[in-house]
């Protein structure tokens, strides 16, 4: 059975920062835009977590907005 398409995500590599993750995951965007978009798509990390923005190895980090 073919799986339906779902929203793309990545997981942080050890000691990875948002900057490096954004550059790795969205090389098609300029870095500042990629960072702002990734923050807005991942509020579980960048809003609700304490400390905010702490990237964890097990995280699902979306690299695109919700799918149509």
């Amino acid at each position: 059975m073919t799986l339906s398409q779902q929203r793309r995500f990545t997981t942080p590599e050890p000691d990875e920062t948002l900057d490096s993750l954004a550059a790795r995951a969205r090389p098609d965007l300029d870095l500042a835009t990629a960072i702002e978009l990734i923050r807005g798509w991942n509020l579980h990390i960048f809003l609700m977590r304490r400390p905010r923005g702490l990237l964890l190895g097990g995280d699902v980090v979306f690299i695109e907005p919700p799918l149509i």
Partner: peptide, 16 residues
């Protein structure tokens, strides 16, 4: 409503 037109929901805890 996201930049691509998709409507999604985000559940926020009270502090956030």
């Amino acid at each position: 409503r996201y930049e691509n037109g998709v409507v999604g929901v985000v559940a926020l805890d009270s502090d956030s």
